[in-house]
């Protein structure tokens, strides 16, 4: 009987602590996997694994941060697409394009108008998904999940300076991709 009570207490404690951050984790899963089915599967895998280890967990730990770590590991093990890992040439190509834009003073207001009026949220998600994983992680955590630099550095296990460099690279790469989208859109008008 006491074993049943213990189990019930564990379920209730897990639900109380682990369910509130579920929306944030689901969102991260969607952006990292790029589709709803895989995102849902990653979320389920994360919670299954988290519950296995929950009774051994140091209760002073931040549950949200821990769940994100569990999800990161589940993602690496089952969902990561290694071919999407960034290569220098990927970034050099974007950097080259960005430098050429710099000299021509791009009209950000016009780009904003096209993006706001024509680009759907699904298309934006696809464009974000096309950014290499190591850059995508930092932009999702910073700009969607509102993690601090320290929290991101801790999560991806790199120094804060690297987080900042990756964030800048990710944003410039996204800008380049959105700019190319807007140019293509203009050509078809």
């Amino acid at each position: 009987m006491s074993d049943i009570n213990e189990r019930a207490k564990l379920y209730s404690e897990f639900e109380k602590n682990a369910i509130p951050p579920m929306d944030a984790l689901y969102n991260y899963a969607l952006r990292m996997t790029g589709n709803k089915n895989k995102g849902s599967r990653l979320l389920q895998e994360t919670y299954k694994k988290a519950f296995w280890f929950f009774d051994k967990l140091d209760k002073s730990i931040n549950i949200r941060d821990w769940l994100f770590r569990v999800m990161r590991n589940a993602f690496i093990n089952k969902f990561s697409n290694q071919s999407k890992e960034m290569t220098e040439s990927d970034y050099e190509e974007a950097e080259h394009f960005y430098k050429s834009l710099k000299s021509s003073s791009p009209d950000i207001a016009r780009l904003e108008k096209v993006i706001n009026n024509k680009l759907t949220d699904d298309e934006l998600s696809e464009i974000l998904f096309s950014v290499p994983e190591n850059l995508r992680i930092v932009i999702i955590l910073c700009d969607i999940e509102s993690f601090s630099y320290e929290e991101i550095a801790d999560f991806v296990d790199v120094p804060v300076g690297t987080v900042i460099s990756r964030l800048r690279r990710a944003r410039l790469m996204l800008f380049t991709k959105l700019y190319q989208y807007a140019e293509k859109f203009d050509r078809h008008q």
Binding site: M22, D23, A24, Y26, N27, L30, R31, L43, I108, L111, E112, I115, D121, L124, S125, L128, I139, C142, D143, I144, E145, R171, L174, F175, L178
Partner: peptide
Amino acid sequence: FIKSIISERLKIKPV
């Protein structure tokens, strides 16, 4: 620009 587009358009949605 990118920060505002990403944070506004890809807001956290409920599970």
